[in-house]
Design a protein around this nucleic acid. Structure first.
Lengths: 120, 120
DNA sequence: CCAATGGTTCAACGTTTGTTGTACCTTTGA
DNA sequence: TCAAAGGTACAACAAACGTTGAACCATTGG
């Protein structure tokens, strides 16, 4: 599998970052990653009940806005929020968004706390 | 002129607010209003070099996301940021966005400071 | 080698978006 | 009363978006 393109958050315009965070599905992905940390992609799209190709599409947008990083071990892939880097580029933005996401249905793991600092 | 629809910020979903703030032109409008306070619409669209109908379109999106308020005195209209109300609905979001807008060309008035508290 | 698994890529689609121009409405000023 | 000014509403269009399904690629396990 070829290495996917990951944008450097430093190169991302604010409007592009806002757009990446303006879709309900992508907000849920970001919320999930913020809560659970690095997560397998299959877990995410089965938790959200969307097709693989649709998930792949949204993952790409999130990668291209510098919001997530994906690495693959074998045929499995996992995603994580690039909290620190995104926060360096847009101070306070991700925290503001995360703390304003209306909580989705039934967390799979106990909710601990919100915020970016925890994510690395 | 009929009264224009203004959304109650309390009714605006996060994704809609993010979308309203994901367009470069709308970001410049918000930036301008945050810097200069209440401003006549004609000033805004001539400052941005866009057509009246296009400006009207973007103003409507900003109204419908609870971001701006428009009032008309005579045949002139002016817009202002609904900073406090938007901030109540989405704490920290507008501040985070404003402090991350890359400064536009040549401010018409001296830049004082950024932030929402000042806007009322 | 073969089949199954986890994701990507592509074409296709319907919808939404941003932009322009024109017609229109309302208020002011002569 | 009439014309001009400030904005809105509408139709039109190209571009982008979200979604789906099918084909494809890479990796693992038998």
């Amino acid at each position: 599998m070829r290495d996917a393109f990951h944008a450097d958050p430093a190169d991302v315009p604010l409007a592009a970052a806002m757009h990446a965070l303006s879709d309900p599905l992508r907000l849920r992905i970001v919320e999930l990653l913020a809560r659970d940390g690095e997560t397998e992609c299959s877990v995410i799209y089965s938790a959200l009940g969307i097709s693989k190709s649709n998930a792949s599409h949204h993952f790409r947008i999130l990668r291209e806005s510098g919001l997530i990083w994906r690495n693959h071990q074998g045929r499995q892939q996992s995603a994580r929020l690039r909290g620190d880097e995104f926060n360096t580029r847009f101070p306070g933005l991700l925290d503001a968004v995360l703390s304003n996401i209306e909580p989705g249905p039934a967390a799979h793991r106990p909710v601990q706390q919100q915020g970016v600092d925890r994510i690395g």
